[in-house]
Design a protein around this nucleic acid. Sequence first.
DNA 1: TTGTATTTACGAAAATATTCGTAGGTTTGC
DNA 2: GCAAACCTACGAATATTTTCGTAAATACAA
Lengths: 125, 125
Amino acid sequence: MIIKPTESELEILNILWSKGPSTVREVHEVLEQNKEAGYTTTLKLMQIMHDKTLLTRDASSKSHVYTANVSQQKTQGQYIKRMIDNVFNGSASQLVIQALGNHKTNKKELDEIKKYLAEMEKKTK
Amino acid sequence: MIIKPTESELEILNILWSKGPSTVREVHEVLEQNKEAGYTTTLKLMQIMHDKTLLTRDASSKSHVYTANVSQQKTQGQYIKRMIDNVFNGSASQLVIQALGNHKTNKKELDEIKKYLAEMEKKTK
DNA sequence: TTGTATTTACGAAAATATTCGTAGGTTTGC
DNA sequence: GCAAACCTACGAATATTTTCGTAAATACAA
């Protein structure tokens, strides 16, 4: 199944991924920190996401509690794939190098990457 | 200036980046290989992109010749930034690792990345 | 109980993106 | 010169995404 949340949906997924199951109100309060938005806008979005099964919800209490129903990892993977295909001519290394170049990457992050590369090497042998 | 081409626009930019300046017909023929689309649809899109100054054009001959007016590198950079922010919680290394993990990366690509990392190291010192 | 606040459901407007038909102009080959 | 092929311009229909107002239900406090 192809997961293709819109940008707004992605913002909401991100909040749910990091905070865990939340009510509309809770999600909305986080969203508001970055941009203006009406409460019912957030509500509607999350209802639509529920219809699309991007979210599940527990309606047992008055304020429904929503949970992301797609994994962060899988969603990330599909985004990357789309991006590599559409924007990077299929070259993952081009993406990686751009990412490292444009973004200020700290030592800890670099170490993680090197560690990961080393593991890949091992498996290849 | 923030560059934010839509998905369709990105497809066209990619063609222009790789083929260089081209007519609508030439772009359209490449597009057709991947998906069904009417000629005037492609034309209209490129006209809109011209209005947005994503493309420049030479109208001196009957078939106008369009050129990408945004660099591939800059566009890529902005996409990555947006993606890191929206989908990867601001962590570039998370993106890099996902990219390497999901995508089959060959030895040549891996070498390029390692080389790049080594250079970064040098500069940091 | 009663009213105030909060919530959901839902329709619909507004904004944005995509697709296409048609009209009119230009080129080309016969 | 004339028709066929091809091109642009442009309006408008569709589709998709985002936003919001309103009504009805529920909870809660006085």
